[in-house]
C-alpha cells in the first residue's frame, strides 16, 4: 500500500531529515510512527502527501510511484488520502457540517449525497448532534474528532494522522486511538505519527521508530 525504498531527504541547509529509510505498510495495516521531535516522522507524512519530494529513493503509494505524479495531478492524488492534523486545521468560520463536507464538495458530490455522508461520518465520531455548531464552541477532543470525520468522509483508502492526540488528556487520547482502530478494521490503511509511547505500546500494532532520520525499529514486516 505504502512503500518507502531507501528514502533520503536533505533540506537546503544540509540537514538530513531522513537517511536511507525503507519500510512497507500493507493494506489493512495500522502502523504507528514514533521518535523524538525532529526524528523525521512529519517528513515521512509530508512525503506521502506530496508536500515534499525525496532527495533520493522511491515512494510508492497504492502501486503508483510518486515521482510520476506531476504538480497538476497532486490534488487528485490527495483526494484518496485522509489526513488528521495535530492542530485540527478546521475552518473556524464554518459549521461542523461544512467543515466535514469540504472534501466531498471538492470531489463534487451533489448535496443530498454530501448530507448523507457527512452525517454518517459525524455519527461514527459521535458528533451527529453537533453538526450545526461552530468549531470554536467545541472542546479540543471534539475538534479533533471533527478533523477525523473530515479525513474519513470521502472514504479514503489511506488515513494519515500527525500527532492526533498531541493536546489531549490520556482518556481522550485512548478514545481517539480506538476510533482509528475502528476505521482500520473496516479496511482503511492507517499510519499515525505519535510520540506518546505509553499509549501506543498498549495498542499492539506495529511501531516504526525513527531516530535522527534513521529507521531503528519496526521496518521489517
Amino acid at each position: 500500500m505504502i512503500s518507502f525504498e531507501r528514502i533520503s531527504k536533505r533540506y537546503g541547509e544540509g540537514h538530513d531529515a531522513l537517511r536511507e529509510v525503507s519500510f512497507k505498510i500493507e493494506k489493512d495495516e495500522l502502523v504507528f510512527l514514533t521518535g523524538h521531535s525532529g526524528a523525521g516522522k512529519s517528513t515521512i507524512l509530508r512525503l506521502i502527501m506530496l508536500m515534499e519530494r525525496p532527495t533520493r529513493g522511491e515512494v510508492v503509494v497504492n502501486g503508483r510511484p510518486l515521482r510520476k505524479i506531476g504538480p497538476r495531478a497532486i490534488p487528485h492524488y490527495r483526494r484518496d488520502i485522509g489526513v488528521v492534523f495535530q492542530n485540527h486545521q478546521l475552518l473556524f468560520d464554518r459549521t461542523v457540517f461544512d467543515n466535514v463536507a469540504l472534501p466531498l464538495i471538492i470531489c463534487g458530490y451533489d448535496h443530498r449525497e454530501v448530507g448523507r455522508r457527512v452525517r454518517a461520518a459525524l455519527d461514527k465520531v459521535g458528533l451527529l448532534s453537533r453538526e450545526r455548531a461552530m468549531p470554536i464552541a467545541l472542546s479540543g477532543g471534539q475538534q479533533q474528532r471533527v478533523g477525523i470525520a473530515r479525513a474519513i468522509v470521502a472514504k479514503p483508502t489511506i488515513l494519515l494522522a500527525d500527532e492526533p492526540t498531541g493536546n489531549l488528556d490520556p482518556a481522550l487520547s485512548a478514545e481517539i486511538m480506538h476510533l482509528f482502530e475502528a476505521f482500520n478494521q473496516v479496511g482503511v490503511t492507517v499510519l499515525i505519527a505519535s510520540h506518546d509511547l505509553a499509549l501506543i505500546s498498549r495498542l499492539h500494532h506495529r511501531i516504526i521508530t525513527l531516530k535522527q532520520g534513521k529507521l531503528i525499529a519496526g521496518g521489517a514486516h
Binding site: M49, M51, P75, H76, Y77, R78, R79, V83, Q89, L91, L102, P103, I106, C107, R150
Partner: peptide
C-alpha cells in the same frame, strides 16, 4: 487546508 485535502 483545501489544497491539502485535494482541492485543485
Amino acid at each position: 487546508i483545501v489544497k491539502l485535502i485535494g482541492g485543485s
